[in-house]
Design a protein around this nucleic acid. Structure first.
Lengths: 178, 178
DNA sequence: TGATATATAGACCAATCGGTCTATATATTA
DNA sequence: TAATATATAGACCGATTGGTCTATATATCA
């Protein structure tokens, strides 16, 4: 997973994968089939990791605004400095393969949907608790938030994230909560 | 440019470029040097196009909120349906190459900076005109907006943009203006 | 210890990669 | 029309691609 993560699908050659898995050529093909299958497994694992993280951070039993703050804080960390420059396997894959590879497209589209739903749920709970600013609609605010988060990962690839990152995230959330 | 745009750098092979440029192998190398140089030229042109578009849409002589609306409307169009699925050469390149290619990184980082500055300027003018909501800081709002816009381009790669796209953009801008 | 199953290293494969070069055709100019 | 410059097609190059296969070594087990 790590190799695809830092280099992308096309730029990752078999020798890279052998080095990373410490497997011989034969064993790797016996275990995973081919490069594409191995990539899908990596993508699935990456998605699974992201989902469990969301399950924890956006746990419905938490106070919803705290949960959202924790969730956003995770992105701040993952898009800062070296973490940020490494990028995001999901975003990179969306841009590199989603247009040409149906299997990949399916996975990414469904993850995006799940992510949006979970954030929308958290916002709904916040609204029910009277924590949302006037006129803020959970579904629409969720779409805004996730677009913003993906955008963060793009910008973080080139710009060494400034100290202002956390402040920017706070400013956005601040527009939604009261 | 179009080929790199729809397929990415690594996935574009010489024959693709020959077909697209209608040049012979020899002529292409005489004219552009090598694949990488040709790619940089494509990237430069893409950036130049984006800059002139911004110069028009965010023209300081326009009413600033109108200008921002026009600018955002451009993104709505470019991320809808087939346009959206085609993606964005800048975002795709940022994810695919920015980490490994200094020339590319420089170009993208400087464009991101220019874009942020122009949006921040427009927001400053809006603020001066008393059009910004209370507590909205132009610099921070600009960062939020551009992250959101890049994120749009990521999401648009997989999700056939729903009718709600324009509404989402309006909702975000609505949080900033009064 | 001897037989058997498993994993290893790495030779090998055709196809394709980016890039060069030459012989031919096409303009251009005198 | 003849001489010259330019662009073409495409053969060709070594390197590398993803993928297969075999001979050898290493465990496992009786």
């Amino acid at each position: 997973m790590d190799v695809f993560w830092s280099r992308g699908y096309h730029a990752t050659a078999l020798p890279d994968l052998l080095r990373a898995t410490k497997l011989s050529r034969g064993s790797l093909y016996a275990a995973f089939g081919d490069k594409h299958s191995l990539f899908l497994r990596s993508l699935d694992r990456y998605i699974a990791d992201a989902m469990t993280r969301m399950d924890i951070e956006l746990d419905p039993r938490r106070e919803p605004v705290d949960a959202l703050r924790a969730y956003l804080a995770g992105y701040v960390e993952r898009t800062s400095g070296a973490n940020g420059r490494r990028g995001c396997l999901l975003v990179a894959t969306a841009m590199e393969l989603a247009g040409q590879d149906a299997e990949v497209n399916r996975r990414i589209a469904s993850f995006f949907k799940a992510m949006e739903a979970m954030v929308a749920d958290a916002l709904s709970r916040a609204k029910a608790a009277g924590k949302l600013a006037e006129g803020v609609e959970p579904a629409s605010a969720a779409r805004i938030l996730i677009c913003f988060l993906w955008g963060l990962r793009v910008v973080a690839k080139t710009a060494p994230t400034p100290i202002t990152l956390q402040a920017t995230v706070d400013a956005l959330l601040g527009r939604f909560i009261r």
